[in-house]
Amino acid sequence: MPPAIYALLVVNFAVGTQGFVFGGLLSEMAADLGIPVGTAGLAITASAVTFAIGSPVFAVLLARLERRAILIVGLAILLLGNLACMAAPGFGALIGLRLVTGTGAALVGAVGGATAAQLVSPEKRGRVLALVLGGLTLAFMLGLPLGSAVGGAYGWRACFALSAAIAALALLALLAVMPRVPPIPGPRPSPGALLRIPPVRAAFATNFLAFVGSFCVVAFTGPLVNQVTGLAGAAVGPFQACIGVGSLLGLAAGGRTADSPKGRTALLAALVLLLLCQLSYASLLAGWGGARSAWLLALTIVLSAGALFAVVPILQARLAALAGAATPLALALNGSLVSLGQGAGAAIGGFTRNHLGFASAGLVGATIVLAAALLAARVLPRLGAGVTPREAAEPARPGP
């Protein structure tokens, strides 16, 4: 495996950590800034939505530029933006700075996955994309628990110092081993043409709904652990590590099936498991776990993360196969929908938590995941039917 693939893994580790590094300290952040916990969750949403909007835009605007330079600029913005977040004087300033860090993440997302796909042969794309996505797993296994430990010891602002340090590590790794990577030759990718392909639309929608439903609860991991187990601060870290363990297992399973005929079956199984996990969250938040609540919560987190992250490489590998020269745009759009799903899930979960109670957020999440599963069962059998990679790169034609 080229060393640059592992550098991209570290880059994803930095991006994933900055997105949620303070998630275990939302209650403490809210108390310090004098805002509801649900409102504090908007600090997650701000970065996620910026990533979601910016990533595909940058994929089109920067389609003719060398990839390594784009990644370096994105990581530099992440580094400086997180240092500024550490000193934010209030919640409004923090939201503004989270928009800046979201922009840095968007630059990385615009080319990161496609760069990984360019560095290996087509038959290895599914496994390589799963490996690079493993950086997000490391963020949950190491970055987020470290954030909770550091924030518990030194205050929630220290979480951003940790995120900046990880961004600096990723930047150094990139400078050390990443070669210059030219843009993919061919026509400039067209979002309109890409979205005209039915299986591509179905893959995008399934991924988006899965993340929206899951993040109605998991975006609030700190408050979730607080309410179900009574634990707080650094004690939240092991539960965040459970997300990483589940993600690692899910990526391994999804990566193995991504390029095989079993991909659709694995996808449907993962979505059904994700649905059951959202119902489990609702039950635990309603107080039905009893004396075993902590163990049941840890198991639910592992299974939920595993199911969610098994979905991603399966859909990404299929998108890369369909998109041809538009692969950077397809993967950027998919990544932006993942981020938008995370942000939308956090917003929906926060609103539901504030107005209907935390357990209701689990039920709302289950309903959204059910929609993803039904869509996959009905539409995704047509994935790959009669579609050539060239179609995704052709300019969009005006409608009638």
Rank of each mutant, 00 (worst) to 15 (best):
L315Q: 11
L172Q: 00
V150G: 05
V369T: 11
T115W: 09
T137P: 00
G222C: 11
S304K: 04
V311W: 02
I166F: 08
L62E: 03
A153N: 01
L8K: 10
G222T: 00
V111I: 11
P36A: 06
A161I: 11
E394G: 09
G54H: 07
P185T: 09
G23R: 08
P313T: 04
G54E: 12
S163G: 10
M86R: 14
G230H: 08
G134D: 03
A202R: 11
C216R: 07
M141P: 01
L129M: 15
F20V: 09
L146W: 11
P238Q: 08
R98A: 12
A282G: 09
V120M: 08
L62H: 01
G135T: 02
P183V: 10
L322Y: 09
W295R: 09
V387E: 12
F358K: 12
L129G: 10
G23N: 14
T101Q: 11
L83E: 04
G134L: 03
V311D: 06
A241I: 03
T229M: 04
A332V: 01
G233T: 05
G365R: 11
L363C: 13
L8N: 07
L308W: 06
S360T: 14
W288R: 14
Q278Y: 09
E123F: 05
G365E: 02
I348R: 11
A330Q: 11
A193S: 15
R292P: 00
A114W: 07
A305C: 03
S339V: 04
G155K: 05
G263R: 15
A31S: 15
T300Q: 00
W288D: 05
F215Q: 02
